[in-house]
Each structure stands twice: as structure tokens, then as C-alpha cells.
């Protein structure tokens, strides 16, 4: 196992980055989106769902590790991040027990059964979201804003209606708790970028590929308003900055990250334009997660002196 960490020759840099530090920074970066979501859906009591989902995620990690006589790792905040990310991916009206069930699924089935942090083969929060989406399709696509039920702007866009990109940027729209405000997400993403937790490679290639795909196949050509609406709608921003960049489920090689970003962009565009539902970010990310071992295998850098012409 240990040799997997040695991806380059010495000298190595010592760094203060630990799992718990990184996870804490991700938590801080998620705060703007969380606070905005709770405020935005205050009539739907979104805070309750956020608290329950996060608490259950941490609790199920604790209980599982106690029962299995393993070291308890809830202090590294990874379960809290999983729970919070899941909550941000749920519609505010979802019954609390469904959120809790999603958390249990994310932490126990997707993460712990595969060996805990660092061993999960797909993003636990997104896997749980897809689990809930398949199980409770009606509940998971029931969106309310200010007490009024309706379609999300992305669904309107797919139906060929016009949408107001300014409110989509600010986030006063229907959607899941954390995805509505692009502004709040970007504040968090900027923080992560400045702290060096994530870099632009994956989100950058993801967004650029997606824009190119939409321009070619969207049927509107290079229509800035249409493209902005697609970028601000749905979970694209939340997914690109916070979930596609998950260390465990994204490639570690430089070229691999580019390939991964391109895959994400293509799949998201494909699902959004040609798929049955308006949104496709979560499926795009978990399918690309599954491709990561393959991507890493083909993009593994050659050690100095190896390879070349024979």
C-alpha cells in the first residue's frame, strides 16, 4: 500500500496539511452556501434537514467504527463534510428520515464498507443523492421556493422557456438547499483556491468542456445568456468546485485530472441536453469517479530514464 504514495522522487516537501485540516477548510468553504441555503429556504425549515443529515452522517461513522472495533475517525471531519454536502444536494422539503437514510447509506455503504476515508470508490454524498433520487424520485424532484411549488430554472430552460440569469446567480430560486446561489458557492470556492486546497485543473476543464459542449449541441450557438443560465443552473457549480475535486475520488496525476475534467464536462452536457431529466451533474460525477482508476493507469507519469523509443 505504501508504495502508492510515492508518486515522485525525493526531495519531498513537508507540509502541515492533514486530513482534518483539509476537511475543516472544506467545511468553512461550504458555510456561505449553507447559510444562504438555510436563509433562502427558511419557510421550508431547511436548517433542520441540514442539521439532521450532518449529525446522522457523523453519528453513523461513530457507531459503525465502535461496533467494528476500529479507531474512531469522526474528528477528521470527513463524515461531517459528507453529511453537509449531501444536505446541500437535497431539496428543502425532503422528509428528515430520508435525509438520515441518505447519510447512513453514504457513510456506511459507500465509505466504511469499502475501507473508510481514502478507500471509497465514489463520492459518498453524491452516491447517496443518487440512491435517494432513484428511490424517492417524486420527493427528490419536488422543489419549492417561498411556499410556491414549481420547476427549477434548469427544467424551464430545458423546456425552452427563458430564465432570469441574475436571480440564478444570486440564488433566489428553486433548487436543492446548497446549489441555488452561485455567488455563495464561488465565495467558498475562492477560499479553497486561495488556501491551495483545490486547484483550477478539474473545475476549469470541467466548466470549459461543458461550455464547449453546450455551444456545439445546445442549439443556441454561442448565446451568452443561454450558457450562463446553464452554468448557474442546477448543481454544476457545487459539483465542479466541491465534489469533482474530492481528493479520494479524483485522479492524482496532472494529465489525469485534465482527462477527468473533460469526462465530467462531456457527461454533464450529454445528460442535460439529451437525457430524460434536466439535471445530470451527480450522475456525471459518480460515473467519472468510476473511471478514475483507469484514467490514472493510462496517465501515470513515466519515471526518469524509463520509456522513450525502443
Amino acid at each position: 500500500m505504501n508504495e502508492n504514495y510515492n508518486i515522485s522522487a525525493s526531495p519531498h516537501i513537508r507540509d502541515k496539511a492533514t486530513s482534518s485540516n483539509l476537511m475543516l477548510m472544506v467545511l468553512i468553504a461550504l458555510l456561505p452556501a449553507t447559510i444562504f441555503g438555510i436563509y433562502n429556504f427558511r419557510h421550508e425549515n431547511a436548517w433542520l434537514l441540514v442539521v439532521v443529515t450532518t449529525a446522522v452522517a457523523v453519528l453513523s461513522e461513530y457507531i459503525y467504527q465502535k461496533l467494528m472495533h476500529k479507531p474512531v475517525t469522526i474528528k477528521d471531519f470527513s463524515a461531517a463534510v459528507t453529511g453537509l454536502l449531501l444536505a446541500l444536494n437535497l431539496p428543502p422539503t425532503l422528509p428528515l428520515w430520508m435525509g438520515a437514510l441518505g447519510s447512513i447509506f453514504a457513510v456506511i455503504v459507500v465509505k466504511q464498507l469499502f475501507g473508510g476515508l481514502g478507500q471509497n470508490f465514489m463520492n459518498p454524498a453524491l452516491a447517496a443523492r443518487c440512491f435517494l433520487l432513484i428511490s424517492f424520485t417524486g420527493r427528490m424532484t419536488y422543489f419549492v421556493y417561498d411556499g410556491v411549488t414549481g420547476a427549477t430554472p434548469l427544467a424551464n430552460l430545458k423546456a425552452g422557456e427563458t430564465v432570469d440569469t441574475m436571480t440564478m446567480l444570486l440564488g433566489n430560486i428553486r433548487g436543492t438547499i446548497g446549489e441555488t446561489s452561485v455567488l455563495a458557492i464561488m465565495i467558498g470556492a475562492m477560499f479553497l483556491l486561495l488556501m491551495g486546497v483545490i486547484d483550477l485543473r478539474i473545475p476549469g476543464t470541467y466548466i470549459v468542456t461543458f461550455v464547449v459542449f453546450i455551444t456545439i449541441f445546445g442549439g443556441h450557438g454561442f448565446d451568452a445568456q443561454y450558457i450562463t443560465a446553464h452554468l448557474c443552473g442546477g448543481g454544476l457549480m457545487l459539483g465542479a468546485w466541491f465534489m469533482a475535486t474530492d481528493y479520494v475520488t479524483s485522479p492524482i496525476t496532472f494529465r489525469g485530472q485534465i482527462v477527468y475534467g473533460v469526462c465530467l464536462g462531456l457527461l454533464t452536457g450529454l445528460f442535460r441536453l439529451f437525457g430524460g431529466s434536466a439535471e445530470g451533474v451527480s450522475y456525471a460525477i459518480i460515473i467519472s469517479n468510476l473511471l478514475v482508476p483507469l484514467i490514472e493507469k493510462v496517465t501515470l507519469p513515466k519515471p526518469f530514464g524509463k520509456g522513450g523509443e525502443k
Partner: peptide, 15 residues
Amino acid sequence: YEPITIFILAPGAFF
């Protein structure tokens, strides 16, 4: 009881 539909779909068989 709200049925967890995924269990009568393919992934549920594996679980």
C-alpha cells in the same frame, strides 16, 4: 411507509 424503490431495481439486488 414510503417504499425505497431502489430495492426492486437492479442495484437493490446487489445490496
